[in-house]
Design a protein around this nucleic acid. Structure first.
Lengths: 143, 143
DNA sequence: TTAAGTCACTATCAAAATGATATTAACATG
DNA sequence: CATGTTAATATCATTTTGATAGTGACTTAA
């Protein structure tokens, strides 16, 4: 998909590193604590070829970090970096959208691990406090 | 990418309709007011074959609506549905991530159309008010 | 000591998706 | 009638995917 990354748009920039479903699902699983190749493979039912490539890309892009957890036999796992952890809100919000518009049948729920209460994710503008989408947005192009 | 949609996970559900970069960029442009085939094509530099398919999928999935704006010659445009509009927060949050971690060089800014102030998007849990990512999350599987 | 298992991959190859380019259909305009 | 506009298709090479099998470096159980 060519050079989206030199676009001015931060959304396009984001999409160049994490613009496909597998990558997002890997990040989801990583956020839930998975770290190993086989954990991801089994959880996602993804072909190992694809998984290898996705993990490599996410590592190059700085969302995951390869860490050796055993010297003999040599084994690596993948842990989230700060950038990877900070992607979680995007996923949670995507999930909230999915729940609202594709929520037929049984569905997993995300709950606060301490209170046990279900999370109700919303995006707000920290400046005005307004829910995003309730006020019109304009793009200010650079220069 | 097989049947993600019958997964229990709302994130996976979301990804089945909007799980690729082009779809998200189309939604971004639609949120900024674009409606016509050629507007999307020029804005994105996307091949018309792909654009046709993406628009059709987004329409089937209920994020866009085809609307005839001219009878002679017959011409259709694409406008966001409620589901499509509600996807904007996800994009804005993705953009915030892109700005933070891929923000080198000049970058567009999203501003409140009324106040003119730059938007600072955050995802919060409406229940606790806590920023998402600051408290551990658990998945509650159905049944 | 050998057989079986674990785990993070790579090799191979068919099938599907993408993307570039050209073309079409249905008109309006000069 | 020639040219332009606009929402697409047609064609076809390239790229990406995905399924399946196999590998290397071990550990563990018999």
């Amino acid at each position: 998909m060519k050079n989206l990354s030199d676009a001015f748009c931060p959304i396009a920039r984001g999409l160049t590193c994490v613009g496909d479903a597998w990558s997002m699902l890997i990040l989801r699983d990583a956020s839930l604590g998975l770290t190993r190749f086989d954990e991801f493979r089994k959880s996602l039912g993804i072909a190992p070829t694809i998984l290898t490539r996705r993990l490599a890309t996410l590592t190059e892009e700085g969302l995951l970090e390869k860490r050796r957890y055993s010297e003999r036999p040599p084994r690596d796992e993948y842990v989230l970096t700060a950038a990877g952890r900070d992607f979680l809100p995007v996923l949670i919000l995507l999930g909230a959208w999915g729940r609202q518009y594709r929520g037929e049948g049984r569905l997993a729920r995300y709950v606060d691990a301490e209170t046990g209460e279900e999370i109700e994710p919303v995006a707000v503008d920290a400046v005005t406090g307004a829910k995003i989408g309730t006020r019109p947005i304009r793009v200010a192009t650079p220069e």
